[in-house]
């Protein structure tokens, strides 16, 4: 279920210092999310595709994820083109799709795909544990970092527990459909999951105390950026700066669409 096979490659991006990757991913997402210029949006999409190629990600996995994530974008395409006033492009029954509407939908599609591809290339290429370590080194509050580690660790445990309970229901001929019985059974499943998790959390805390837990977080990994990585991160940052300049500082009408 929770696969991390994107993080198992051996590309340059996989070895990249996760702290730098998080910083670049953050400033890039924020900038792209605010772009409106089509030339720049296409440029960002190309930039993200370059990153994905650089990270040598499996094309099948990338496409599969894009398909799932574009569900909401697809829904917007069904509604947005018909929600704007303006020049009519085509008509479906009584509804008229307008140019600004289609442009808006296209803009959102480009933005979300550019951002998601970049996140896949930069964040999914590191194991989650490494990213959380990096968050710790980036001075995220220690309680929150603890929470990240524990949650990530227990998602797997809870999911296994869930599948076990679910299998037990299925071997007893449970067939889900739209009725109270189904909802009640699922609710009891979740209830059982909560009770077992609660008891587990008590045991975990006790065993942490036994091992001398005093609220401190000892990190095993310390990151060091190689000069080459700093240069690469700087190049990516320059690209972000360029698209920001292109968007917000009018350099004549050359870049405008």
């Amino acid at each position: 279920m929770i696969s991390e096979h994107l993080s198992e490659g051996t590309s340059y991006l996989h070895d990249f210092d996760p702290r730098l990757k998080i910083i670049v991913a953050l400033i890039y997402s924020v900038t792209v999310a605010l772009l409106t210029n089509f030339t720049l949006l296409f440029a960002s999409l190309v930039f993200s595709l370059v990153l994905v190629t650089w990270g040598r990600l499996s094309i099948a996995t990338v496409l599969k994820r894009l398909l799932v994530i574009n569900g909401f974008v697809f829904f917007l395409w069904l509604v947005l083109p018909f929600s704007y006033e303006g020049k009519t492009l085509f008509e479906v029954g009584p509804l008229a799709a307008t140019q600004p509407g289609v442009y808006q939908a296209l803009r959102i599609t480009l933005k979300s795909n550019a951002i998601i591809l970049c996140l896949m290339a930069l964040l999914s290429t590191s194991p989650t544990f490494m990213l959380v370590h990096a968050l710790h080194h980036l001075k995220v509050p220690s309680k929150l970092v603890h929470l990240f580690f524990f949650t990530y660790r227990y998602i797997h445990v809870i999911y296994t527990e869930f599948t076990r309970l679910h299998t037990a229901m299925k071997v007893r001929s449970f067939t889900p459909s739209t009725n109270i019985h189904t909802y009640k059974s699922y609710a009891y499943l979740v209830g059982m999951l909560l009770v077992r998790s609660y008891e587990r959390s008590k045991r975990i805390y006790q065993s942490m105390l036994c091992r001398g837990f005093n609220g401190k977080f000892h990190t095993l990994y310390h990151f060091e950026s190689k000069p080459q990585e700093l240069v690469s991160a700087a190049i990516m940052t320059v690209f972000v700066l360029l698209i920001a300049i292109g968007q917000w500082i009018p350099l004549g009408k050359i870049l405008t669409f």
């Binding site: 524990f150 227990y154 979740v190 999951l193 998790s197 959390s201 008590k202 805390y205």
Partner: peptide, 11 residues
């Protein structure tokens, strides 16, 4: 409370 909150977050 961290283990408890984390486990409920995973649920």
């Amino acid at each position: 409370k961290i283990p408890e909150v984390a486990i409920l977050s995973s649920v």
